[in-house]
Design a protein around this nucleic acid. Sequence first.
DNA 1: CTACATAATACGTTATCCATAATTACGGAA
DNA 2: TTCCGTAATTATGGATAACGTATTATGTAG
Lengths: 221, 221
Amino acid sequence: MNRIAPTALYQEVAERLRQRIFAHELTPGTWIDEQKLAEQYGISRTPLREALKVLASEGLVELKPRRGCYVTEISRQDLDDIFPLMAMLEARCAVEAVRHARPVDVRDLEGIHERLEAAARDGRIDAFFEANQEFHRRIQELSGNRWLLSVIQDLRKVLKLSRLHSLSLEGRLQQSLDEHRAIMAAFAAGNAEGAERLMHDHLLSGRDALARIQDVGGKAA
Amino acid sequence: MNRIAPTALYQEVAERLRQRIFAHELTPGTWIDEQKLAEQYGISRTPLREALKVLASEGLVELKPRRGCYVTEISRQDLDDIFPLMAMLEARCAVEAVRHARPVDVRDLEGIHERLEAAARDGRIDAFFEANQEFHRRIQELSGNRWLLSVIQDLRKVLKLSRLHSLSLEGRLQQSLDEHRAIMAAFAAGNAEGAERLMHDHLLSGRDALARIQDVGGKAA
DNA sequence: CTACATAATACGTTATCCATAATTACGGAA
DNA sequence: TTCCGTAATTATGGATAACGTATTATGTAG
């Protein structure tokens, strides 16, 4: 007998705020007005404040004592710090995932990747983002290390603060697909070290694309 | 004009609970009685609940909806997952730290390590633990990557849930010192790759010691 | 125009109450 | 006696009102 929604209100609020932050509706630096937001959501300050505590621990907002809550601003330096870290972590995932993957897991992964290709073909950006996330996430799950997964997911949330991140992915859709295919091939061949290197480079080439956008855009932090 | 203590009550409470958890006064699995604890601390439930939200995000407690708050139980599998991860992360710190370290930083590190040796010589276990933490932390700071530091510190908090962790360190005090000295030597020589490998092995040998304790103790999860 | 005093704002906290879900205690039927 | 369903109990999650206080904004005097 599975409980349908054992989710508390503060969790729902946290999730709604997360989505608004990721959608850049709440842009970095914005002040979050507790009472206004509580009124907007039709709830009291209590669960809202608890939700903000959660988001603060995730690094999505900053709680300045007696001064309120602000959406975290992420600097170029932060991106430069996080990407190599993610590359290392996801590469580690890939090694472990290849070692643990059963044939059915590889087929499953291929299924996700077909959805990814279809979304790219039809230009459905949102679907592409989602499938891309699931592709990476599935590999992380296959690694069998829940702490590795947890660390990566935490960092990914922070990355999503930057809208440059999604823009860069959008600009190198085809290249990203090619890199994924190479990773899939390594999985099919049971080539752990290959998958490790490919995943590592896949992440770093994401950072390179991002750096190019920054150079063009020019508004570096 | 520096504000002296811009720290809110819920933060203090969170810190006090953290210490009690790390001291194993609140052992894994224990139920945390909100009202009793609030009464004990002479505060209302509100800041206490906010503190629990923070600890939950850190993984120190688990909030089961409608069922209360419990100190996280960490399994042997978790330790097996976390240690290799920590080894990888701290090794990465070591590389970067050696590359960034100025002579004054190396001397600073040597100073910390002297305190570590002194504490070990005098059998002051608590001082040893503290200096050991500072040694590792300083290296993490020298890496110049605040996200790398943040991830490691988060995982370290989880590790401290296990009392086996501290026990194992206690049981191989001398070996730990030797490994530290080798790391120091790599720093002095500017040998980044050496420091990386040594730090990696240093962490893994910690896990090995822990595994031996578990085998003897026998009460595996 | 600066400096200081004052007012407005909103954060952090207390206290109390309530609805609801979980747990326990209880009591009757097989 | 054992099992199962119901009632009572308990604690969590949330709402609400209120208050002290630190921060910010405003206004006034020098």
